[in-house]
Design a protein around this nucleic acid. Structure first.
Lengths: 260, 260
DNA sequence: TCATTTTTTGACCACTTGTCAAAATAAATA
DNA sequence: TATTTATTTTGACAAGTGGTCAAAAAATGA
């Protein structure tokens, strides 16, 4: 008996991970309908009953996945908020975290979006629902914290009509809405948005400018700032990303051959 | 034979309307899963085959509904864009149209959002997909038009990094994302957003301010402007809304009794 | 070795979307 | 009007969901 878990318990945990892994793929490939308990059981060579011993319904699986996703996001946000710099630079760091999260875990973003339409939360257990709400609250709490600091430092003034919470909500709306539209409107290029990510970043910065958050974006060298953040806060993630990029380039043959 | 349609053809058209009406209710009540072909057939006392003669699949019904919705929205946008005033005031009119659309047809907004997650577009017919894309393009074209006019009039300057299209996308993201989050996060009040509509409006205005669109929002009396727009452009809709409000108030007993 | 507990199974239920030959109805023609 | 032709409607049927639960299998303890 190694560790605190019995062999059986470890087996069960491993199986649960396998279920989630498989389910993630299914959802990402064919959306919510692609997720089938029957097919999970078949693929894992267990009976359906066993799968239902792990998750009492489809929705529970989705909630488990979204909780994983939000915890990953939260971790990136935490590190971003801890970036040492002026308040607006720290907010840029959170923006960079969003960017990175999307590029590192596109599937997670997909799942975060999927949870919102179908009436999943109602069917899922209280426990999982609360976990999700806590994650959500933590994320927005981090953003709010940075905005509060900006106000405290005198970099930002907000009146009664426009609260810290409203600005938080605005940034959230732009990023969430932007990604959601981009994912579901493939014809965005025709509409003049070839690169939604840049558009989202620009819009966030204009919103912050419009709120009077100093230094304004034209007073900052945003590109070098993002570079610094990537080096100082997200070095491992950026490395991972560039590795993936290289691998993908080699696979598709898009990268230049070495021996020419 | 009255008109250009035979009796049979009129019957069919009426039935189609009934199907859509029923389907709308189902979707709004229980989400995408609430929509059941079996139950439609049962409720309308037709066989399933007859329903399938109108719509070859579930997704076609949803697409038909979303097309209805977007045409209604487009109509409001058209009238808003035709508002006589400075460019920024016209943009406020479109904002008011969004507001009104949401309050008049909350079900339509729900359906507009539902279409985006599940892989519906792929299953629907080319025809309906194109119709949707055209509606979408028309809406964003109207917004773009107002922004172009602003640039032409010298009220707004955009550099190479931030295009007219990006700003359009930004407003779209805020409104779509905001409503989407509000609809799926009932705990928003706990997060400090008791009134998402106002938050969305404020964020849109801050974004426009941040883009430098003159006159800036603090140079305008937005409340009286909105009042004017409601009177001059959307009088019938506002009347309808206040009627509905009164009826609802009487029904719940919230309105004061007449004879006291 | 045998008894008890835990885990796993898969037949089963109620429900879904979607199909299609056959029945019912309407329209056209003699 | 009587008969043939075209159209519309039907509901049994197939294939697939999510979810349940008594019974079988495996693991555990005495």
């Amino acid at each position: 008996m190694s560790g605190t878990l019995t062999r059986k318990q470890r087996e069960i945990k491993e199986r649960e991970a396998k279920i989630l892994e498989l389910a993630r793929g299914m959802i990402v490939q064919d959306g919510y309908h692609g997720l089938s308990m029957d097919r999970i059981a078949e693929a894992l060579e267990y009976s359906k009953g066993t799968i239902y011993q792990h998750f009492s319904c489809k929705e529970e699986i989705l909630m488990a996945l979204v909780n994983q996703a939000m915890e990953r996001r939260l971790e990136l946000f935490r590190r971003a908020a801890a970036f040492r710099g002026r308040s607006r630079e720290r907010m840029s760091a959170i923006g960079a975290a969003c960017d990175l999260f999307f590029r590192l875990y596109p599937d997670d973003v997909h799942i975060e979006h999927a949870i919102r339409i179908t009436s999943i939360k109602e069917k899922a257990s209280e426990q999982r629902r609360l976990c999700l709400e806590r994650c959500e609250a933590s994320c927005s709490e981090l953003v709010r914290g940075v905005i509060y600091d900006a106000v405290a430092a005198g970099d930002l003034e907000l009146d009664d009509d426009f609260s810290v919470e409203q600005l938080t909500f605005g940034l959230w709306s732009i990023t969430f809405g932007g990604h959601s539209i981009a994912a579901s409107s493939p014809s965005l290029t025709n509409l003049g948005i070839p690169d939604p990510m840049t558009a989202i970043r620009n819009n966030c910065n204009r919103l912050l400018d419009g709120s009077g958050w100093k230094p304004l974006s034209h007073e900052l060298d945003l590109d070098t700032l993002i570079g610094r953040i990537q080096r100082e806060v997200f070095a491992p993630e950026v490395a991972q990303l560039s590795q993936q990029g290289q691998a993908a380039a080699q696979e598709t043959g898009a990268g230049r051959a070495r021996r020419d």
